[in-house]
Simulated assay, not measured.
Amino acid sequence: MSRRAPDVREVRAAAYQLPTPTPEADGTLAWDSTTIVVAEVSADDVVGLGWTYADAACVPLITGVLAPVITGRCVLSVPENWQAMQQRIRNLGRPGLVSCALSAVDIALWDAAARWLDVPAADLLGRCREEAALYGSGGFTSYDDDQLIDQLRSWTDRDIGRVKIKIGESWGGRTDEDLRRVGLTRETVGPNIQVLVDANGGYTVGQARRMADALAELGVIWFEEPVSSDDLAGLDTVRASTVIDVAAGEYGYDLVYFARMAPVVDCLQIDVTRCGGFTEWRRAAAVAAANGLEVSAHCAPNLSAQAAAATPNFRHIEWFADHERIESELFAGCLDPFGGSVTVPRTGAGLGLVFRRDAAEPYAV
C-alpha cells in the first residue's frame, strides 16, 4: 500500500552576506561581498533546500508572499505549486528579486520532493546524463597579474580545461588592458586550454566587433555579453561579425526573455537561481532546443549540476569562484570539479547537500 505524499508544512528563509577574499570587479560592477538567500521547505520529516544569490529583500518575499500560497499543498506537486506562486506574484512584477525568491522556493520544493521519494533531484527532473562539463570562472578586472595567474593555475592544476576571465574594464574604457590580460591568460594556461571572456555588457557594438577580431586571434572561443544583454539587435550584429560564440541570458527572469534572446546568441545562458528555479529552467532549455541551441548554466554550480544532468541540450556549467567558495563553506556534499566535469550521483536523495547552519550563522543578515 503506497504512502500518501505529505503536504508542505512550513517555508523558511534567511539571508547571509559573505565577504569576498579581496575586492572584486568586472567591466561594469564592483563588489566586496555576496549575499545568498537560503529557503527551506518542510514536509513531514523532510526538509528541502534552495537558494538564490540576491538581496536580502527576497526573505520577506519568500516568507510573507510565497509561503502562504504553497503551505498545505502536496509537496510532490512541484509544477502545480510553482504555478500557484507565479499567479500570486502577478502584480509584484516577475523580473528581478521576485523571480529570485520564486527560484529559491521552487528549488527547495524539488529537493523536498526528491528527498521524500528517496531519489536524486536529477532523476526526478528526468536525468539524461551523469557528467556535466564545466569551466573555471573568475578572472576579475580588479585582480593584479599575480592574482590572475594564481587563479588560472588553480583551475589548470585541477585539470579544468576551460577558463573564463572578465574584460570590458571601466565600461569598455581600457580595451588595450583587456587584450593584455587575455594575452596573459593565454600565456599562463597554454595553447590547449579553452579561453572564454565575459564583458558584462561593457562595450558598444563597434567596440565589441573590433574586440572580437582581436580576441579570435588569441584563440578565444566564447564572448559573453559583448554588449548589454538588453540590446538584442547589438548582440545579433556582433554575433554575425565573428566566429567566436556569442552568449547571453543570465539575466533571464521569465520564459519570454529566453524566447527573445535565443535567436541572437550561439549559446543560451540560464541561471537557475534567477529564472524561476528548476521548473522554469526546463521550459527555457526547451526554448533553446527549439532554436537549435545548447544552454550553459550561469553560476550556482551545485544547483546547476542537477539541472545539467536533466538537460539534453546542455554545454557546460560556469564554476564561478565566488559561488564555489560560498557553497563549499555553507553546504556539505558539494561536487568536485576536478578534471573539468562533475559527476551527478545516482545515489542519495534530493540535491545531496546538507545546510551547515552553524557555519552560515556568523554571516546572517
Rank of each mutant, 00 (worst) to 15 (best):
V37Y: 02
A39W: 02
I36Q: 11
T35R: 02
V46S: 03
T28A: 01
A39P: 09
D26R: 05
A30L: 07
S33V: 03
D26I: 10
P23A: 07
E40Y: 06
V46M: 05
G48E: 07
A25C: 09
V37P: 01
T22N: 08
V47R: 09
T22E: 13
V47G: 02
I36A: 11
V47E: 03
S42Y: 15
T20D: 11
E40H: 06
A39D: 09
I36D: 06
D45H: 10
V46D: 03
P19Y: 00
T20F: 08
P23T: 04
T22F: 12
D44S: 14
L18H: 13
D45W: 06
L18K: 11
V37S: 02
V41G: 02
P23R: 05
S33W: 06
G27F: 03
D44T: 07
T34C: 07
V47F: 00
A39H: 04
L29E: 14
W31A: 04
T34P: 00
V46L: 04
S33F: 10
D44E: 12
D45G: 02
A39S: 13
S42M: 13
V46G: 02
T22C: 07
G48L: 07
T35Q: 03
T22M: 12
Q17G: 10
A30I: 05
L29Y: 15
S33C: 10
V38C: 08
T35V: 03
V37L: 02
V38P: 10
G27S: 08
P19K: 00
P23K: 05
L18V: 15
V37I: 05
S33Q: 10
E24I: 02
G27E: 04
V47T: 15
T20A: 11
E24M: 12
T35E: 03
V41Q: 04
E24G: 00
V37N: 03
V41D: 02
P19M: 03
A30V: 11
